[in-house]
Design a protein around this nucleic acid. Structure first.
Lengths: 348, 348
DNA sequence: CTGTTAGCGCTTTCAA
DNA sequence: TTGAAAGCGCTAACAG
């Protein structure tokens, strides 16, 4: 069906010949930085390129220059709105700097993450952004850091999103603070009997949010007994099952906090499926403010993170294209977080 | 903060020297296809590589081989669940074939799409997958086709997702058929007064769904007057505004069909905000079956497309890694579609 | 099976 | 300014 007789793409050489100039001149007119080319020649070269449908071979360019225009982004799951929003920000910021972004998914698997980082190094990306939820204490963590350090030693730049990963640059999310504020707001709304659907214990983000929430409650003299903390997957279904488990335990609860919105959505559905009206019977709150939580019923109370900005900022942080000093060491503190009260947590 | 004295990554040359073998042997042991290397040597090389922290420079490899391991994926908006689900499929299938995927977003802008395709060609990707909603009749369409043809002429492969884009390979979505089936099912449920929030007239996918829906209604002798068709953005907010407009028109309607789920979610919210109970007062249906529509209230009736599979299939189609014949010309017909009736369209 | 030696397409000294 | 030529890191004949 398609023509098998595929000729190869026009090369710079072809263009030079077509324009009747040297390779060097062609290179300079098309991609050269310092413009030191007779305008006539430049014109000719550009036209020749046009005529031949020439496009710079970025790989060859990268090999010759020793530096690429690639950004590698690692996410746990690109279909998760949390990550896809961040990705949107990264891509947007990258395209402003004419960088191309490559996305790899790790599925929250530390081994796979490590393998992916190794594989990605083959691309010699300028920047590597890790947005996966860092696990803690994993046997792979040390190896990962080693790998990343060596990546930086050889000229790459890495940026983490979420919690501090010194010595690497990080877009800090105030997981603790956000969760604390949420807890306080909820307590002030009159809630007293809390449960948390907490995600896997090894995921640091999950743990931080749990800690912060617990701390906020403590400020109001409310304790969070261990049996009210249910660990489950960091996904919608994890939230659903966690809520089921909570219900099955018979605990008397007036508010359940899921440590991320995707899970909270699962919680809402589980409650409803169990015949409990979310918001009326039991309040529900999440974290992240992904787009959909505004559209579920009741709309979800949550902690807002400007996800796209976070992605954008990660890229800028890594490329040094923001905040004056290229290596300022992390930008101006953590990303601000905001408690958003919606219908899922009416005043009691 | 970071060490400025960045040495460059180890090269194959370094490895060869360290192992005391020739460049060629090193290449063969590390990346060579046909294994024709003394196991002792191979061992030595591998260890040396390990010691030096060597990673194959994929770019250099690509230049030398004249072929890359890159897949370029173009989507309108990566934060839209429709596209992020497809992307997940593409990435998954790609990683199985050890291909790396680069994502670019076009924002449904034909000019930008064209520019992006041109820029992406610089990467000499093996495959280019276009998942954006093709616009029709755009002045850029011809240029785009030219660009893509020339990409294929020079050895690339392109795959479209959605409607036929001959002569390019396409993962066909049965937009018409799916919408038709939905209309029929809805009519059989007892609905009679329909409206459609239809998305931009130039977006082919939107148009096909509208046509199919209309045809299905016609089979039941129901007509869809022009004033019941409201065009708006292909987004959640587009759906919201479309529904507002519909309401404002005072039309008496018992079912509104939004041509995609994201819009339908907006419709549901708009109805609710207007004091109308979606599902009770007015039925709502969408298209795509993105994950969240199961969790909104009422759960949304829709037409299911196996989005991840679609992405996976697009890649396989392009790389020829499925269905026996590499160039079979499109695989086994359109992706099957399935009407899913949920709470948003109770029997009347 | 191993090493030598041309390239791959592009950039970048270095003279002219 | 421009062009010739030497690489960039890797692969792929080609002899040995």
């Amino acid at each position: 069906m398609s023509a098998p007789a595929s000729k190869s793409p026009a090369t710079l050489h072809d263009v030079a010949r077509e324009a009747g100039v040297s390779l060097a001149t062609a290179s300079r007119s098309l991609n050269g930085s310092a413009r030191k080319v007779n305008e006539d020649y430049r014109q000719r070269v550009v036209e020749a390129a046009q005529r031949l449908g020439y496009t710079t071979n970025l790989f060859a360019q990268a090999v010759a220059k020793g530096s690429t225009t690639t950004v590698a982004l690692l996410v746990a799951d690109i279909a998760d709105p949390y990550f896809s929003s961040i990705a949107a920000g990264v891509i947007d910021a990258a395209s402003e700097e004419r960088l191309v972004v490559t996305i790899a998914v790790t599925g929250r698997d530390a081994q796979r993450e490590l393998d992916t980082v190794r594989a990605l190094r083959g691309q010699r990306p300028r920047v590597m952004i890790l947005a996966g939820s860092r696990t803690t204490g994993s046997a792979f963590e040390a190896e990962l850091r080693t790998e990343l350090s060596s990546f930086e030693d050889t000229g790459g730049k890495v940026a983490f999103i979420s919690q501090d990963a010194a010595p690497f640059a990080t877009v800090l999310l105030d997981n603790r603070g956000g969760a604390r504020d949420l807890a306080v707001a909820l307590a002030e709304l009159g809630y007293r009997d809390f449960a948390v659907i907490a995600g896997p214990a090894e995921i640091r983000t999950a743990q931080e949010r749990l800690d912060g929430f617990s701390a906020g409650l403590a400020e109001h003299g409310i304790s969070l007994p261990a049996e009210r903390i249910i660990h489950s997957d960091f996904t919608r279904d994890g939230g659903y099952r966690g809520a089921q488990e909570l219900l099955a335990s018979g605990a008397r609860v007036d508010l359940v906090f899921a440590v991320n919105d995707v899970m909270a959505v699962g919680v809402v559905s589980a409650l409803r499926d169990a015949g409990i009206a979310p918001g009326e019977g039991i309040g529900v709150a999440g974290f992240d403010d992904i787009p959909t939580v505004r559209d579920i019923t009741p709309a979800l109370t949550t902690v807002r993170i400007p996800l796209e900005d976070v992605g954008r900022r990660a890229l800028q942080l890594a490329t040094g294209s923001a905040y004056g000093a290229p290596d300022a060491g992390g930008g101006p503190g953590p990303i601000p977080t905001e408690t958003i009260i919606r219908g899922s947590t009416p005043r009691r």
